[in-house]
Design a protein around this nucleic acid. Structure first.
Length: 450
RNA sequence: GCGGGCGUCGCCAAGCGGUUAAGGCAGCGGCUUGUGGUGCCGCCAUCCGGGGGUUCGAAUCCCCUCGCUCGCCCCA
């Protein structure tokens, strides 16, 4: 069938899921705010060259995963595959760095043309932190701590922080030579992919999952041993900082990040609950990137967090899920009759202006039908407005959530708390009541704001 | 780009060569011509992702194709 459907790897977020995302985003915003980090929003579309130069031509992301196309002006454009390059570009373009170090965060969709699988989509969402103009090892610790604390606050369990240092570019060149020398000798043990990388990008062989390669790497020289004394000392400071903050970590000398701009500290926060895509958050230092994009030499560190993966983790534990129901109406307006329907429209508007969550039945259906819908909406009250009420200037108020014998079982949807008379009961209105229209608005306004 | 699994109504799901393609949820209508959640009754796939083939006969077997999904690669 040729029904219209979303593009492969492009996923709809349906209403039942958006509350969790909103909650997540709100928590993240709060953490950034407390840490003095400001939000920056950059375009989804950039010139292709930004990513080619920023991320590295040899990387998979640039080499085979970008959504690139020519626009009507024949410019090569690319849907951003990550956030860092854009943030740095924006900071340079607007002279942010001349105003001192920048603590920035961003969030939103990223695009990578890959085969979708668990925890991987073509359009996916990241929240990221970029600290531009920060060189001290303490900034590494702070950046990691912000991520760690956010994740902990969200209630994500079973996370592990893996840490490595890639040193300076000189350190890496040094190590690269040692690694190549070692692997050359055992070349035939590498898979085709590994042999290919031996020339192009030998460091990437380190995180290969190929069993024979893994076995071979046990004997391989360690990157950490190639660090210059200053790099080593810097790395130790980072570790000391994390220890002081009681953030547990494991050293992983095989941890190399896939984007070229990383140096010194590299880290990943992983979960064993995610299947193949274990990394929830990844980042590191990128002291060379700003300069590479045409700016002044500027030390920087940042990370990005994969929202879909986070949601996957949150959905497993029920910690967050409970208090995230969508807004339930305070009041459902049942109405029927030409004049009454108009009055109901007005009533709903006034009640909303007074701060109440009001659902108006606009179907014109029979009262029975409307009450069924009122009940399913989860509203606490039904306001009934028909022509006879209207004639007398009244509205009938009916409690919907009162427990009635035999009504509890078999409930669907948002049952649970069987609300009693609520605030209105306390005001001497047990059960059903008739009220003057104006009084209802006034009364509910008071209850709503209480 | 390469492997594995799967594709029946909006959702869940029976069926496994001959059925009018079960059932449940949701939806709609009615019993109750202005009053809710229960109950009862009725309606809701000429069609089984699409195309071809085998057969007297296919949702059920074969081929191709598309889509979904998991994994490799890579990354958040």
């Amino acid at each position: 069938m040729d029904k219209l459907q979303s593009l492969r790897g492009m996923v709809d977020l349906l209403p039942e899921h958006t509350p969790l995302w909103q909650w997540l985003e709100a928590r993240a915003r709060l953490h950034f705010r407390r840490a003095g980090v400001s939000e920056i929003r950059t375009p989804l579309l950039e010139v292709t060259e930004l990513f080619a130069r920023g991320i590295g031509e040899a990387t998979d992301v640039v080499g085979k995963e970008m959504y690139s196309f020519l626009d009507r002006g024949e410019r090569s454009c690319t849907l951003r595959p990550e956030g860092t390059a854009s943030v740095v570009r924006a900071a340079l373009q607007h002279g942010l760095l001349s105003q001192g170090p920048q603590r920035l965060w961003y969030g939103g969709p990223m695009f990578r043309y890959e085969r979708p699988q668990a925890g991987r989509q073509r359009q996916f969402h990241q929240i990221g932190l970029e600290m531009l103009g920060f060189a001290d090892a303490r900034s590494d610790v702070e950046a990691i701590a912000i991520a760690w604390d956010l994740l902990a606050d969200l209630g994500v369990q079973g996370l592990a922080l893996e840490l490595n240092s890639l040193g300076t570019s000189a350190d890496r060149a040094n190590y690269r030579q040692q690694l190549v020398d070692f692997l050359q000798v055992h070349r035939e043990l590498l898979d085709a992919d590994g042999q290919d990388r031996l020339e192009r990008n030998p460091l990437r062989i380190l995180d290969s999952k190929h069993p024979a390669t893994q076995a071979l790497l046990v004997e391989a020289p360690s990157l950490l041993n190639c660090l210059a004394p200053e790099s080593r000392e810097r790395f130790e400071q980072v570790q000391a900082g994390l220890t002081a903050l009681q953030i547990p970590f494991q050293l992983n000398p095989r941890l190399v990040r896939g984007l070229d701009y990383y140096s010194h500290t590299a880290f990943e926060i992983t979960s064993d609950q995610l299947g193949a895509q274990a990394t929830v958050c990844g980042g590191g230092r990128y002291d060379g990137l700003v300069q590479q994009l045409g700016g002044p030499a500027t030390a920087a560190i940042g990370w990005a967090l994969g929202m879909e993966r986070l949601v996957l983790l949150l959905a497993q534990g029920d910690a967050a899920a409970n208090d995230l129901a969508a807004a339930v109406p305070d009041l459902y307006v049942v109405n029927r009759g030409a004049a009454a329907e108009l009055a109901a429209l007005r009533l709903a508007r006034e009640l909303r202006a007074a701060g109440l969550v009001v659902e108006l039945d606009a179907s014109g259906a029979a009262f029975k039908k409307q009450f069924q819908r009122a009940d399913r909406s989860g509203a606490r009250w039904a306001a009934v407005l028909g022509d006879s009420e209207l004639e007398r200037g009244l509205v009938r108020l009916k409690p919907l959530r009162q427990q009635r014998p035999g009504a509890a079982a078999g409930g669907e949807g948002a049952d649970g708390e069987a609300v009693d008379g609520g605030g209105l009961g306390g005001k001497g209105l047990g059960g059903e009541a008739e009220l003057r229209l104006d009084d209802l608005v006034a009364l509910l306004a008071r209850v709503g704001s209480a």
